[in-house]
Design a protein around this nucleic acid. Sequence first.
DNA 1: CATCCTGTCGAACGTTCGTTTGAAACATAC
DNA 2: GTATGTTTCAAACGAACGTTCGACAGGATG
Lengths: 224, 224
Amino acid sequence: MTADDTRTAILDAAETLLAEVGYAGMSLRAVTQRAKANLASVNYHFGSKAALARAALERRARPVDAERLRQLDLVEQAHRGGKRPPVRAVVRSFVAPVIELSSEFGTSTCSMFCRLIAEQPPFLDEVLTEKFATIGRRFAEALRRAQPLLTIADAYWQLHFMVGALTHTMQHVGMWQRVAGPDFSPASTDEIVDRLCAFCAGGVKAHEPRSPSRRKTRSKATSR
Amino acid sequence: MTADDTRTAILDAAETLLAEVGYAGMSLRAVTQRAKANLASVNYHFGSKAALARAALERRARPVDAERLRQLDLVEQAHRGGKRPPVRAVVRSFVAPVIELSSEFGTSTCSMFCRLIAEQPPFLDEVLTEKFATIGRRFAEALRRAQPLLTIADAYWQLHFMVGALTHTMQHVGMWQRVAGPDFSPASTDEIVDRLCAFCAGGVKAHEPRSPSRRKTRSKATSR
DNA sequence: CATCCTGTCGAACGTTCGTTTGAAACATAC
DNA sequence: GTATGTTTCAAACGAACGTTCGACAGGATG
């Protein structure tokens, strides 16, 4: 009984701290203090700091990715038989679950995702590799179905840009509000999702096929 | 003589390590070892670890931001008198200098930018606040001139998304290559700039004005 | 020559880190 | 009751951290 309580209390504390200070900045003493647990209990329940962080991440990432795939399946089923699914809907299946499910779990869930992706501590390598091999491949294919002009490489680049916009946005909304002041009003979850999806869908649709032979002339003044 | 040599050797080492392991992960012992300098020399020349990181960042950020403003000035001068500057050109002034100048300085310059922005160690607060107050405001205005439909808040959101796509892209190109395999071919600096500018400009242009009264209904599962 | 300033260097300071240990506390089964 | 397995706890381990200190070398200035 108390064993599971301790486990989840530690996971909750780790999630908050990962969001606020990242993996390198999170000390097990801070975790156990916040969880009102003993220092040794982390290594008892999880084995190591890396294993704890990994568990805290996967606890949240699993349902988010499941929801992504579920929404994508629905989108594709609704546009079966030659009809191309709209880019915007595919993008939304990728973006929305992160923000919406995270805001259900708590304010720090999304920040934890974004911080870990940005920091990429060593223990995350295989987790991310596997995740992108499944989720990434699946959405790259869906993007190509929605926008047949895309090559495989194109689709991966678009996903890459989307992940960047998504993670950075969710991690640093606070800073922009501080910097831009009242011009940058606080936003609801729905508004952020809408803005982000519109931006990413527009970016994907803006793609113009590259001809590898034609080398673009770059206007001087910019130049490289 | 040797004094300046030591200083720049330390800055170079710090830049590399900030790019690879971030601020929290960078130890002064690792810095001095890589710079072939004495451990105490960091505090002698810079005063503290935070001051060193700040110096390493500003050494590179200053010319990048200057180039951004220079290119933006050129774009706006070329479209004076009622003519709206193209969104793509404004976006490019913001994006290209980071990638192009960084690749001149060395492979780690851009990664350092991106890691620090993602990590946001405490010492960076005032640096970023000041930078976004000048560069951010300037480009937000330029975006609104290029795309008059944008409100101030809209423009800041677009910039926010652009920064995310930019930083994430430049920091994690390597991972995507590893994950996606040969599908995700290595890219030249020019190609990355082109792809990124196309995506961001498309995202900005895709903006549709929001009517604050009309609350959008969200269709469960897919999109709205 | 002596003096001063600038840098370098090895060594140590006090903290904090992740991890381990061994004993106590607890619940469950016989 | 005793025995068994699980969980908590205080304490300590060695290692690594940022920082500080005093001694020492080198060249410029008097």
